[in-house]
């Protein structure tokens, strides 16, 4: 299967790989996994008092499409408000990376990682 140029670019030069300090109170973490392929994804967001995502980090164990999807969303969420980030859809990710149907679950994983991180944000604020 041929990967699109954008997938290859993100795979070879992944953006924002790594972790934030666990104890930083402004950091929330989303952990998700795809049983179909065994991929695991960790997405961390650094959110300021105004509810703006200042920075993002990811760590993904999976195929090229899963790594590219998570790398892409770390770029997309930076500078966005929590509400804007929550509206990112897997279809946007799949379209941007030109993912074939068998790799759509990678984009779903990335969307769900954002959602999981934002859920922690909400429960922290509550």
């Amino acid at each position: 299967m041929a990967y699109s140029e954008k997938v290859i670019d993100h795979y070879e030069n992944p953006r924002n790989v790594g972790s934030f300090e666990k104890d930083d109170p402004s950091v929330v973490t989303g952990m998700v996994g795809a049983p179909a392929c065994g991929d695991v994804m960790k997405l961390q967001l650094k959110i300021n008092e105004a509810g703006i995502i200042e920075d993002a980090r990811f760590k993904t164990y999976g195929c090229g499409s899963a790594i590219a999807s998570s790398s892409l969303v770390t770029e997309w969420v930076k500078g966005k408000s929590v509400e804007e980030a929550a509206s990112i859809k897997n279809t946007d990710i799949a379209e941007e990376l030109a993912l074939p149907p068998v790799k759509i679950h990678c984009s779903i994983l990335a969307e769900d990682a954002i959602k999981a991180a934002l859920e922690e944000y909400k429960s922290k604020k509550a």
């Binding site: 952990m31 049983p35 179909a36 960790k42 164990y61 999981a116």
Partner: peptide, 15 residues
């Protein structure tokens, strides 16, 4: 299925 798993402690262990 394309459903994702969100069991954090299990996923931490996987990581």
């Amino acid at each position: 299925e394309t459903q994702t798993v969100k069991d954090t402690s299990f996923l931490m262990q996987q990581m």
